[in-house]
Computed example of a mutant assay.
Amino acid sequence: MENPLTFHRYHGLGNDYLVCHHSVATQLTNQQIQRVCDRHYGIGSDGLLVDGDDGEIPTLRIINPDGSEAEKSGNGLRIYARYLFDCGRVAHSPFKVNTLGGQVSCLVEEGAHQVVVDMGEARFNPAALPALVEGTEALALPLMLGGKSWQATLVSMGNPHCVIRVQKLDLEQVRQLGGQVETLPLFPRRTNVQFVEVVDRNNINIGIWERGAGYTLASGSSSCAAASAMYKLGLVDEQVTVHMPGGQLTITLNKDFQVRMRGPVQKVATIQLDKDCFFDMHG
């Protein structure tokens, strides 16, 4: 007998995900997952987190609303950690999680509303994204967008990021240009995009265009990438508060560019999907 199509909705700073067990995900086609994530025809979310719990170390798969698969997600990892805690599979001590973008360490703090994730190393080699750019670093890569010249810093957090520094953050600009940057030919697997305004040595404002999801209120891996890029450029100190439309995350870096993220998670609902959602009314 098939498992009911049960999903758990959480959000991290307005970046919302549905979590389901892999036995639920295996019942769905890629097209049906896209329908589930649709905000008008399904439940709606910024992506689906699939819990693979068969091994000793939990494994997380991250599926974008367009059906593509992401290697890593900071908000997704915080949400998955909280989900594991809510299921009673972890406690208030560090534990490992496997992702396509590498293994990370998570900690659900007392009260369960704050989660810390050691996101691993920020890497600046374009080949790590991958990006079709020569050299071992691309810290001031020239881009022509909307008839204007911009400079980008390429960062891999286990997933690809193109960080563009601006004097003043304009979220409408993020919406207009983010999709163009995501699909530039120099990013064969596309890329996440951040526009960054440095406020001072400990604060940055960012706008986010997420690969496979579009304009997003908040993103953990984007926060890590943006803070790492500004740290690499010598513009911020080792602890940075990243301000996004959805709220704030605290990013801590060391000299080896190991990145730690701390931020909130809230549970919203447990939802059982009706398969009538998938009926083709136009067939």
Results as ranks from 00 to 15, higher is better:
residue 24 V to A: 09
residue 189 R to N: 12
residue 256 D to F: 04
residue 149 S to F: 03
residue 50 V to G: 14
residue 223 S to K: 01
residue 91 A to N: 02
residue 21 H to G: 01
residue 71 E to L: 09
residue 140 A to T: 14
residue 119 M to D: 12
residue 66 D to I: 05
residue 166 V to D: 07
residue 272 Q to D: 11
residue 253 L to H: 04
residue 64 N to F: 04
residue 167 Q to P: 00
residue 148 K to S: 15
residue 155 V to A: 13
residue 60 L to Q: 04
residue 141 L to G: 10
residue 148 K to M: 13
residue 138 A to L: 08
residue 70 A to E: 02
residue 69 E to M: 12
residue 32 Q to P: 07
residue 254 N to M: 03
residue 123 R to G: 05
residue 178 G to W: 01
residue 202 N to Y: 11
residue 10 Y to N: 00
residue 246 G to K: 03
residue 43 I to A: 11
residue 216 T to K: 08
residue 60 L to A: 09
residue 238 E to M: 06
residue 97 V to N: 02
residue 200 D to V: 10
residue 46 D to Q: 07
residue 55 G to F: 04
residue 263 G to I: 06
residue 37 C to F: 05
residue 221 S to N: 02
residue 55 G to Y: 01
residue 6 T to E: 13
residue 175 R to V: 07
residue 70 A to P: 08
residue 107 L to Y: 07
residue 265 V to C: 11
residue 182 E to Q: 12
residue 227 A to L: 10
residue 8 H to V: 14
residue 192 N to M: 10
residue 45 S to Y: 00
residue 26 T to K: 14
residue 234 G to T: 14
residue 149 S to P: 04
residue 76 G to F: 10
residue 236 V to N: 09
residue 190 R to F: 04
residue 114 Q to K: 13
residue 59 T to I: 07
residue 176 Q to W: 00
residue 67 G to E: 11
residue 260 R to W: 03
residue 5 L to H: 08
residue 55 G to W: 00
residue 163 V to Y: 02
residue 139 L to A: 15
residue 109 E to A: 12
residue 265 V to I: 11
residue 114 Q to L: 15
residue 202 N to S: 15
residue 51 D to Q: 05
residue 279 F to I: 15
residue 71 E to C: 13
residue 245 P to H: 11
residue 21 H to W: 00
residue 218 A to T: 08
residue 112 A to M: 02
residue 120 G to L: 09
residue 262 R to I: 12
residue 270 T to E: 14
residue 196 V to S: 13
residue 263 G to N: 02
residue 217 L to K: 08
residue 111 G to V: 07
residue 282 H to W: 05
residue 252 T to P: 02
residue 66 D to H: 07
residue 26 T to L: 07
residue 58 P to H: 10
residue 137 E to I: 08
residue 189 R to Q: 12
residue 120 G to A: 10
residue 139 L to C: 15
residue 111 G to Y: 03
residue 103 Q to R: 14
residue 260 R to A: 12
residue 16 D to Q: 02
residue 90 V to L: 12
residue 258 Q to H: 10
residue 121 E to F: 09
residue 43 I to G: 10
residue 33 I to F: 04
residue 206 I to H: 02
residue 273 L to A: 15
residue 36 V to R: 01
residue 271 I to S: 06
residue 171 L to S: 11
residue 125 N to R: 08
residue 31 Q to L: 11
residue 228 S to E: 04
residue 44 G to L: 10
residue 75 N to K: 09
residue 218 A to D: 02
residue 101 G to E: 02
residue 63 I to A: 14
residue 264 P to I: 01
residue 9 R to M: 15
residue 281 M to R: 12
residue 256 D to R: 11
residue 41 Y to L: 14
residue 264 P to M: 03
residue 58 P to W: 06
residue 69 E to H: 04
residue 86 D to W: 03
residue 218 A to C: 10
residue 142 P to W: 05
residue 73 S to M: 01
residue 17 Y to G: 06
residue 195 F to V: 13
residue 196 V to I: 15
residue 204 I to E: 00
residue 162 C to S: 13
residue 78 R to N: 03
residue 235 L to E: 12
residue 90 V to N: 09
residue 41 Y to W: 11
residue 177 L to Y: 11
residue 213 A to E: 00
residue 178 G to I: 07
residue 276 D to F: 03
residue 122 A to V: 04
residue 222 S to H: 05
residue 244 M to E: 05
residue 54 D to W: 06
residue 51 D to I: 04
residue 93 S to A: 15
residue 39 R to V: 12
residue 248 Q to T: 14
residue 196 V to Y: 10
residue 182 E to A: 12
residue 59 T to E: 15
residue 13 L to A: 13
residue 105 S to K: 12
residue 38 D to F: 13
residue 153 T to V: 13
residue 87 C to P: 02
